[in-house]
Design a protein around this nucleic acid. Structure first.
Length: 112
DNA sequence: AATTTGACCCGTC
DNA sequence: AGACGGGCCAAAT
């Protein structure tokens, strides 16, 4: 499945749906968009997106770390934006975030 | 045409 | 906590 407009639209929609002060993993976004296992595609769509209103900073790695290396300029911007909406970010890592539990968490418990 | 490169993820050890 | 292997896949070399 190529990165056609429909695929991109669905991924954008899921990211736009992440509430303020909340975060989601790339793989989580992929699942919610009906494309399980396609985390890399989400990352790619994000990297190519021109939509400046998209809350890209709410998307993190599954382990809660910011995807960029600390040296990358977007690393600091993402940290700032998240802190700006109340998310605790320490050393590029989000701590315990106030958010509704996902289906995964309901079934398997919080990611340690 | 083959290989490498990413804003990745997961089970297993 | 980290490493390793496999899955993922469009773009760029």
């Amino acid at each position: 499945m190529p990165t056609d407009n429909e695929t991109m639209r669905r991924i954008h929609a899921v990211i736009r749906a992440i509430p303020r002060g909340d975060v989601a993993g790339y793989g989580e976004v992929a699942r919610r968009a009906g494309m399980p296992g396609r985390a890399r595609l989400v990352a790619r769509v994000l990297s190519l997106s021109e939509d400046r209103t998209l809350p890209w900073f709410r998307v993190l790695r599954s382990d809660g770390r910011i995807a960029f290396p600390p040296a990358h300029p977007l690393f600091d911007e993402q940290s700032q934006r998240l802190r700006g909406e109340g998310v605790d970010v320490v050393a590029g890592r989000v701590g315990h975030v106030h958010r509704a539990i996902s289906l995964d968490e309901a079934l398997w418990g919080p990611r340690a």
